[in-house]
């Protein structure tokens, strides 16, 4: 909270957010990556990223289901 990384907050690229969310869904994350995430991502980015991730997850599963039943 009070560390000097604060000025970098929000500087993450879309890809970085996407990666954090993807790893979250698997439940795996390296310590160094996590610290990097914590320093560069804002909560809003994580939440929006998470919701988009959930939507993509749902669409992905639906896509697989279509494949299976067609």
């Amino acid at each position: 909270m009070h560390n000097q990384d604060t000025q970098k907050k929000g500087s993450a690229s879309i890809w970085q957010i996407a990666k954090a969310v993807m790893f979250a869904f698997m439940g795996i994350r390296k310590k160094s990556d996590l610290e990097n995430d914590a320093a560069t991502l804002t909560p809003a980015q994580v939440i929006i990223g998470g919701i988009i991730g959930a939507v993509l997850f749902v669409l992905g599963v639906m896509f697989v289901v279509r494949l299976v039943v067609s």
Binding site: A24, F25, G27, I28, R29, A54, F57
Partner: peptide, 15 residues
Amino acid sequence: GYSSMVYATASIAIL
């Protein structure tokens, strides 16, 4: 894997 635990908890909640 403290960080994995945090991430896994969050994703369990969403899923």
